[in-house]
Computed example of a mutant assay.
Amino acid sequence: MATSDPSSLQSRPAGGTLRYRPLRNLRERAIELILLLAALSSVFTTAGIVAVLLFESFQFFSQVPLGQFLTDTQWTPLFANPRYGILPLVAGTLVTTVVALVVAIPLGTIAAIYLSEYAPAQLREVAKPILELLSAVPTVVYGYFALLFVTPLLQKIYPDLPGFNMLSAGLVIGVMIIPYVSSLSEDAMRSVPMAIREGSYAMGATRMQTALRVVVPSAFSGIASAYVLGFSRAIGETMIVAIAAGTQPNLTLNPTEPAATITAYIVQVSLGDLPHGTLAYQTIFAAGLMLLAMTLTFNIAGHLLRKRFREVY
């Protein structure tokens, strides 16, 4: 019987793959570089946006005092006697956002609890994609839905309700962001280990008690992320408020009145004939910087909240 030479076996590469290792390492490094560039693209884009806002806003604030911008109660930059108080736009933005969150957070959380804890698997597979289709509807359609359907419906309850109002716009924005809240909240609840639910059932808790007192607190960090995303989506909405809420700045916290939001004003000026570089044109960058600061503040608060209640399993 012929025997193989041990020296020849030791000199042969295992599996014959060593000769391809340099090429494989080169491919791995190329893939890592591509993935790094893809990740950095979002960072560079954000940095570019912030840089443009800061540069243009600096030119604006070199002519308008920051104190006047933050405390003045009138926003009339396009009038003969211009006033540059951002408070009316901030009030309109916050009112529509609060109305939207009042609608989206309860309904989205309830839908998430049902899909996670009660719905059969087959129903969940059908209901969740249908619910997420709400986020695929163009916002222009939502805007005219608020103006032509929701507002006349509300006028039957409130006869004095004007045609443009923040209430109908906020309600429709709330319906639009329900999928963001429900989908992310349901994913967070589904990620809670089954052993925690079984332990709750073993202690005699009902399904409702387990869902509200065990699953929801355990998944609160993910649910908070859903709320932050819903807030960011609501505060940055443009077309619905531009169509249904009006374009006249109005310092009020009454949602039944018309008012303009920051995004609606930016659209109004961007579509006008103001020459680039004028003070009136630079107001959109100052308003955009204010919107960025509001969103960043809420996101930081949401991050601290998630960090405070995060649970590791």
Rank of each mutant, 00 (worst) to 15 (best):
106 P>E: 04
120 P>I: 10
101 L>F: 06
116 S>Y: 01
109 T>F: 08
105 I>S: 00
120 P>W: 10
113 I>H: 00
111 A>Y: 00
117 E>A: 04
122 Q>D: 12
113 I>P: 01
124 R>T: 14
133 L>G: 09
104 A>Y: 08
116 S>K: 03
113 I>Q: 05
99 V>M: 09
114 Y>D: 01
110 I>C: 03
117 E>V: 03
129 P>L: 08
104 A>E: 07
104 A>T: 14
103 V>P: 00
98 V>R: 07
121 A>W: 11
111 A>H: 01
109 T>R: 07
109 T>K: 06
108 G>A: 10
125 E>P: 02
133 L>M: 15
110 I>E: 00
115 L>E: 00
103 V>M: 04
117 E>S: 06
133 L>P: 06
128 K>E: 13
110 I>L: 15
130 I>H: 01
104 A>H: 11
115 L>G: 09
110 I>Y: 08
102 V>L: 15
106 P>F: 04
133 L>R: 11
113 I>A: 10
131 L>K: 07
119 A>Q: 05
112 A>I: 04
122 Q>S: 14
104 A>P: 05
124 R>C: 04
119 A>E: 07
120 P>Q: 09
110 I>F: 13
124 R>N: 14
126 V>T: 12
117 E>F: 04
122 Q>L: 15
131 L>P: 04
133 L>V: 13
100 A>C: 06
101 L>D: 02
130 I>S: 08
107 L>K: 02
125 E>M: 12
124 R>D: 15
124 R>A: 14
119 A>T: 05
122 Q>W: 13
132 E>D: 15
109 T>V: 14
116 S>E: 02
123 L>Y: 12
